[in-house]
Computed example of a mutant assay.
Amino acid sequence: MHGSGLQGRSVVVTGAGSGIERAAALQFALAGAEVVVADQDRLGAGRTVKEIEHDGGSAVRVVGDLSERAVVDEVVATAVDAFGGLDVLINNAGIMDRMSALADTGDAEWERVVRVNLTAPFLLTRAALPHMPAAGRGAIVFTAAEAGPRGSAAGAACTAAKHGIVSLVKSLAVMYRGQGIRADAIAPGATATGIAYDVDARAHGPGVIGPGLALSDRITFPEEQAAALVFLASHAARHINGAVLPVDDGWCAV
């Protein structure tokens, strides 16, 4: 990617063993970045690293649950030790809820979804920030999903977590712009990935949300979402800060 400003930069991509995240890791490597591939899936993360290396790129793997502090610390330490710092953080790893309405959301569903989708990116961003100001050009890009800007694309847990991501983006943009660090997010529409859905179609939440989800029938591919992530992290987006970019073929406008 000529003129992207990503050549030689250290990039962490979470969830990079599959889907949008894997596509993003490959595109960052193609642009000349050095990539930390972080994922719970050891085999998937290993395949991503091997593909990057096969194409002449540089990548290392960190395996573990990013909602655990020890794994977060390992990811940041690996970027610093292997590549000399941390320039770009892509907070992409996440899970879906059961599309449960609030009254039907159990403690376990709420705590797991919020932990993975909101607390884990918070922990990783907090750990990464001390290594970014020295670079003076840090970029943090989150995945907010359609549940970030609206209330009709997921259940109570995922909607609350993704709205929290939007708030984190805006807070980071205000607090760290003076240090040359930008924070943005993408809000993907329906995308052809392997994310698992465990939904009771007879429950209240899916019954209410279903008609709205039918409007998202134009499916994007992981590579298209990844291109938006890479753009927001690149030099071309150097004046974009605090933004949430829909990548949904206009679904959010309906």
Rank of each mutant, 00 (worst) to 15 (best):
H131W: 14
L124Q: 00
R150I: 10
G205H: 01
V11T: 11
L232C: 06
E109Y: 06
D81P: 00
A45R: 08
C252H: 15
P188Q: 11
Q40D: 00
A145K: 03
A33T: 05
R202Y: 08
V49E: 10
D184F: 04
L118V: 13
I52G: 13
A161R: 03
S100I: 14
C158D: 11
A228I: 11
A82S: 15
E53S: 15
A101G: 14
S152I: 07
R115L: 04
G178M: 13
G138E: 07
Y176Q: 14
L123I: 08
S167M: 10
V76A: 07
G57R: 04
V49W: 03
N91W: 05
L118I: 09
T48R: 09
T159P: 04
A45I: 01
T48E: 06
G138M: 02
T159E: 00
L232I: 06
E223A: 15
A185R: 01
V72G: 07
D107A: 12
S152R: 14
A135F: 03
G242L: 05
G8C: 03
A127F: 13
A145M: 04
R238V: 11
A101K: 12
M175S: 13
A135P: 11
H2M: 12
E53I: 02
E21G: 15
G155N: 02
A82N: 07
R126L: 12
R202G: 12
L6I: 13
G17L: 00
A45C: 03
P121M: 12
H2G: 09
N117P: 02
Q40F: 03
F83T: 06
L229C: 10
A16F: 00
L168P: 01
D248E: 12
L213T: 07
D248S: 11
Y197A: 13
L30C: 11
R9M: 09
G194F: 01
M99P: 04
I240A: 11
D200E: 09
K50W: 00
V49D: 02
F28L: 11
G138D: 04
D248I: 14
A33K: 02
R137H: 08
K50F: 02
V166S: 00
R137M: 08
A16Q: 03
I165P: 03
Q7T: 15
E74L: 15
V116R: 01
G15E: 10
F83H: 06
L66V: 13
S234F: 06
D73C: 10
P211L: 07
T143M: 00
E111V: 07
I90K: 00
K50E: 14
